[in-house]
Design a protein around this nucleic acid. Structure first.
Lengths: 333, 333
DNA sequence: TTGCTCCTCACGTCACGTGAGGTGGC
DNA sequence: TTGCTCCTCACGTCACGTGAGGTGGC
């Protein structure tokens, strides 16, 4: 067959078939008297082999070696191609993220684009000082999208810079909340912790919904942040997590106060006291039981009173003493 | 500043700076007496602008227009770049999938690689005949990885070809099960249906575990397939789904038989009869209630007997008649 | 004789790296 | 005077597309 027909049958352009010939990858078996390339059945087969290997991303040089050099094993090259492809995909995904950030701001001029790219670059700088400065500069510009700051905040390990970012975000209204919400789904605990802390600074209903989901996070710290904030917003869903905070002992006083605020009806007070008593039964650790007893101080009403009376008889002396002194203080006021 | 220092400070090679000059993208403000390029502060600024835009994937030509042509708005180009990047990512992901398939077979020669690529190509052909042929050929080759056939099966709409694929897969042991399992998580119902059907042909413990998760799928058909197979394996978790199959009416006879087999102790029979009676109470549709009554035929023991006796008094005549005739038949045997 | 196919040679693409051969400034 | 920096010109990369100018075969 002549080159034109072969091209039609294989979908490879005549130009490419000649190119394959010129680089020695595949020459036609024969030539006609007029110099026309004449391809045999075997040649056609080879074309299909070439195209198969090309579809795996091999260069023409690599295809040539693969088909002609019996010592050339596929394993190493295939592994290399996989790795290179993964790297390209990673790079392309980063590029796509940058482009989406730019696209989301709907820039009117390339100046807008440049300012945004520069901001993103500075927010990703190695030097905290430069990051801090970028945040302050961004806070003054009206066109900066909250999503950019939110992304930066989720990645920010430095407390000072993170604080500046939260402040800047809070000034911009609730725009950044969606981006922060994605941080709650991160596999990285630290990202989730940063996300709750930031979400806690918002006051709207959506942020409360997000905190409600965070209160059942797998990480203690995330649960603690969410519980303290949710509790101070009057949400009863925070009670189990708040009791856990008391048990854990870090920021337990704050958690106890919040529990006290939540117990603003006799009914609620009774439930919260019940939950605290259950926790007292579940734990054998003296320090933990003392903290739980202390927490009862904050709960108003007779339920807490009765619970404290029972605790004065507790087997553990420290617990019993704590209960007694709390009752005494209560009587005085 | 001279070109060398600029290069050091910007990270752009001197060669590239000269290239930018030669294509008119950025020329130094001045030249020294000896012809040395002398860059000004503004020039340096422009270099950073150029690199910023390049980091978004703009070509040098596009960067030039963006910086020099005030009529060139960013929106269209940014949108285009996003789309192109998405397409490249999609292509790279396809390539990666192909490479992984090849890599997983640990090919010793490029001949092995070519056979596999050809097989995958044929399995993805538009013509069902070619796909069918490819399956039959693959079944004879020992080196064909089950994962390849499993992937093809999950994508196969043609019943005949799918049947051949299931047969070929079953011959290869349990290797394909993992790939089929991923099909259960697909967002596409049809893929999930194909996955259950295929998994149902395996007999090992892992396939049973997979079916147990499929029995609570959101799709009725997936639940039905899983329930019928699980039930025939003696799994009581299938009972609710089997009753649903009776209610729905497609393959209800088979489901009833399976329920009968599951009811092989008086205790189990009583539970299943109870579940059927609950379903009878929940439904008002005559056809549905008749099918549920029919299903009691298959349940051995006194519980079914008593339920049928009660149903002879049912308000619905068809149901009552059905119950009576079933009881008559039971007495005869 | 007229289209059609085929031939070779060569330039262009895109963003560079890497010389070769030569010169300016401390 | 000796290194160092800078200069221009030009080739190579990779897989092609697109001509130009010419010829073979029905």
């Amino acid at each position: 067959v002549l080159i034109g027909e072969l091209s039609r049958r294989t979908g490879v352009s005549a130009r490419m078939l000649r190119h394959y010939d010129s680089v020695g990858l595949m020459s036609p078996t024969g030539r006609s008297s007029g110099g026309y390339r004449d391809y045999s059945r075997n040649d056609i087969h080879r074309i299909f082999q070439i195209e198969s290997l090309r579809s795996l991303g091999l260069s023409l040089r690599e295809v040539k070696r693969a088909l002609d050099d019996p010592d050339f094993a596929p394993t190493a090259l295939v592994g290399q191609l996989i790795e290179q492809t993964q790297q390209r995909i990673a790079r392309e995904n980063e590029l796509l993220a940058r482009l989406r950030q730019v696209g989301n701001t709907d820039p009117e001029t390339w100046g807008d684009v440049l300012r945004l790219v520069e901001l993103v670059r500075d927010l990703g700088s190695d030097r905290p000082g430069r990051r801090q400065q970028a945040v302050l500069a961004a806070a003054d510009q009206p066109s900066v999208p909250a999503a950019v700051l939110a992304d930066a905040l989720l990645a920010e390990a430095e407390p000072n810079v993170a604080g500046a970012l939260r402040w800047a975000l809070a000034r911009m209204g609730t725009d950044g909340l969606d981006s922060l919400a994605t941080g709650l789904d991160s596999a990285d605990v630290h990202v989730r912790r940063r996300a709750v802390l930031a979400i806690a600074e918002f006051a709207d209903a959506e942020s409360t919904t997000l905190l409600e989901s965070a209160v059942s996070d797998s990480d203690t710290v995330v649960r603690r942040y969410a519980a303290l904030e949710l509790g101070s917003r009057g949400h009863l869903g925070a009670v189990p997590a708040l009791i856990e905070v008391v048990v854990d002992g870090s920021r337990d006083v704050e958690a106890a106060e919040t529990l006290g605020q939540l117990a603003h009806t006799p009914q609620l007070a009774e439930e919260i006291v019940g939950a605290l008593e259950t926790a007292l039964i579940d734990s054998a650790d003296e320090a933990v039981r003392s903290r739980l007893t202390q927490a009862l101080t904050e709960i108003p009403g007779p339920s807490a009173h009765q619970a404290l009376s029972r605790l004065t008889q507790d087997q553990n002396q420290a617990v019993a003493l704590t209960a007694r002194s709390i009752l005494e203080m209560r009587h005085r006021t």
